[in-house]
C-alpha cells in the first residue's frame, strides 16, 4: 500500500512537529509514508470565504499530486472534510458552469482515499493501541469538522484511552465550537473571541494538563487564547500524543 502524507498548509508552516509525529507514528506501525513535495493547500480558506472558483486549481492540484497513492493521511479533520465533503460539490459546480468537466472524475478517484489520521489508524490499519506513552491528564476537544462533517465519532478518544499513562478527563461542553472558523475569527473577532474565552475556561475547568484535538487550527485559536490569559493546559495535536513513547515524551 502506497501511503502519502497530506501535511496541510497550516501544519507545514506552523506545526511541523505534528507532521514529524505522524511520520514517526506510522513508521512505528510499519507504514512508510511518502511526502509528495508538490502538495500545498486543500483550498478550504478560499472556499469557505466565498471564493469557490479560486479553489478549483487547488482541487485539481490535490487530486493530481496524490493520484498514484492508495491512501492519503492527513492530521487535520477540517482539511479531510474539505476534500470529502466539498471537493465533489466544487467539481460538480465547475462542470455545471462549463469550466472544468474533468475535475469531477479526478476528485471522484481521490476522495475515497483520503483519511483523517484517527480514521486511518482504526479503519485501515485497524489498530487501537498504537504503543504510545504519555503520562499526563488529557482533555479532548472534538473539533466541529471532525465531529459533524467527517463523523469520526469516538475514534480519537479510543486511541487516547489506549495510550499508556494517559488519563483522559472530560472537557465541559466539549462539542461546542471553539470559535475559530477560519476567516470567521478575523471577520467576527468579538464573537470568535467570546467563544474562544468560553472554550479556554472549559479547558482550565477540565483540570487537564494537556488539551488535545485532531486539528491544529482549532488548537492555534484555543492555545492563543489560553496563552493570552495565562495558565491552563498546554495544547497538543493528537498525533504528537500518539507518537509519544517512554523514550521520547512529547
Amino acid at each position: 500500500m502506497r501511503v502519502a502524507l497530506f501535511i496541510t498548509c497550516v501544519n507545514d508552516a506552523l506545526y511541523p512537529g505534528t507532521g514529524r509525529a505522524v511520520v514517526t507514528l506510522l513508521r512505528r506501525l510499519g507504514v512508510e509514508v511518502d511526502f509528495p513535495a508538490e502538495q500545498t493547500c486543500c483550498g478550504q480558506v478560499q472556499y469557505n470565504t466565498g471564493y469557490r472558483r479560486q479553489t478549483e486549481p487547488l482541487v485539481r492540484r490535490f487530486a493530481t499530486v496524490f493520484t498514484e497513492y492508495d491512501a492519503v493521511v492527513t492530521p487535520s479533520g477540517s482539511c479531510a472534510a474539505m476534500v470529502r465533503e466539498h471537493y465533489p460539490r466544487i467539481a460538480r459546480r465547475a462542470a455545471d458552469e462549463d469550466r472544468d468537466g474533468e475535475l469531477a472524475e479526478l476528485t471522484g478517484r481521490i476522495v475515497p482515499k483520503v483519511y483523517e489520521l484517527s480514521e486511518f489508524l482504526l479503519d485501515v490499519l485497524r489498530v487501537e493501541d498504537v504503543g504510545g506513552y504519555f503520562p499526563y491528564t488529557v482533555a479532548y476537544h472534538p473539533t466541529c469538522h471532525s465531529l459533524r462533517l467527517l463523523g469520526v465519532g469516538d475514534r480519537p478518544t479510543r486511541l487516547l484511552r489506549a495510550v499508556k499513562g494517559l488519563d483522559l478527563v472530560e472537557l465541559p461542553g466539549a462539542e461546542e465550537c471553539c470559535g475559530f472558523g477560519g476567516t470567521f475569527s478575523v471577520k467576527n473577532p468579538d464573537v470568535s473571541a467570546a467563544m474562544g474565552a468560553d472554550k479556554a475556561r472549559a479547558a482550565v475547568d477540565s483540570g487537564a494538563q494537556v488539551l488535545c484535538a485532531a486539528d491544529n487550527s482549532c488548537l492555534m485559536h484555543i492555545g492563543g487564547t489560553l496563552s493570552r490569559r495565562g495558565g491552563g493546559p498546554r495544547v497538543l495535536h493528537l498525533a504528537e500524543i500518539l507518537a509519544s513513547t517512554e523514550e521520547n515524551v512529547s
Binding site: I7, N11, D12, A13, L14, Y15, P16, G17, G19, R20, F35, A37, S185, V186, P189, A193, G196, A197, M220, H221, G223, G224, T225, S227, R228
Partner: peptide, 16 residues
C-alpha cells in the same frame, strides 16, 4: 486576531 489571542510561534523550519 491578536486583540484577544496570541499569534502562533513560527517554527525554525517548515515541515517540507
Amino acid at each position: 486576531w491578536s486583540a484577544s489571542r496570541d499569534l502562533p510561534v513560527v517554527p525554525p523550519e517548515p515541515f517540507r
